[in-house]
Amino acid sequence: MSEAQAHSFWRSPVIWPLAGILALVLANLLHDRSVAFLSVTVSDGHLYGSLIDIFSQGSRCMLVALGMTLVIAVSGVDLAVGSIMAIGGALAAILLTQHSAPLVLAVAAALAVTAAAGLTSGLLVAGLRLQPIVATLILMVAGRGVAQLITDGNVVTIQRPGFEFLGNGYLIGLPFSAVLVAVLYLIVNTVLRRSALGLFIEAAGDNETASRFAGLAVARVKCLAYVASGFCAGLAGLLAASNIRAADPLTSGTNMELDAIFAVVVGGTALTGGRFSLLGSWIGALLLQTLTVTMYNLGVAPAVAPVPKALLIIGVCLLQSEKSRRWLGGLWRKPV
């Protein structure tokens, strides 16, 4: 009985990241010896505060994690998201500045290209049956080159109020990027769960052979996941460029692949594919951003931030690994 309880507790996707966030918030409060971390102030009708920052700054990772969740659910992985972010930002920047394209057109073009990039990975994985790591590695290498080529290797500054709004604007007092991402999560979740796509994705990741034998077009489902990942990464690239009012093809989205994979894994979607939880990924990304902000707050240099992140992801993976589960299960059973 206690084993069963422990089991269900263990499997609940969002409890662990939520507990992590709580612990981090607590650490901030204890460190500050005040509730400043939790305070939200209103100015010009906009909300300000550390918590709000977490949502707005975390929005890019949330977005990439959204697509990554679907790719991981079909037993894949997309290492090219960082490079695709750079392509999206660079393309929009060039269209907006050098070609003075309308905002909608620039955004649409950037998203179309990044979705096509995702499709390329998808075709390599589903059509040619390359390992996902191998297939997406190609785009990871070449993509950043393409981004550099688009901007001629320069950092392109963008001064278009409409575009700046994407990453810096406010909607009904909340950061627009956070709202946009939350709405996108809602839409995707609704579409996947209301249509049969969610079932198809989970089935393809759970048992690809059985799904194909039951008449599912597995290759198409896989491609779709990679297209979604490309689209989300592209949008994240736009948010990143908008946020700093510049497209930097060299640094935009670097290390984003690990952040996104981390968010997905912490959120309860197994790297082996199958069942996925979008809410879990969203909270996972939130945890990651809270960690970053906390370290900043605790006076850890931002440059060092990767270290605790890496330790955390190793810890989470170890906890989820078969071996340690068995070991922990053994501890559980033993009367202490």
Partner: peptide, 26 residues
């Protein structure tokens, strides 16, 4: 095991799967 069940999905999802796959996602 290998060609039949979707092990981690529910009985319901396994049961409707072929019909749903035949009808498409929408």
């Amino acid at each position: 095991k290998i060609e039949g069940i979707l092990p981690n999905l529910s009985v319901r999802e396994n049961l409707v799967f072929a019909l749903q796959a035949k009808q498409g996602a929408w």
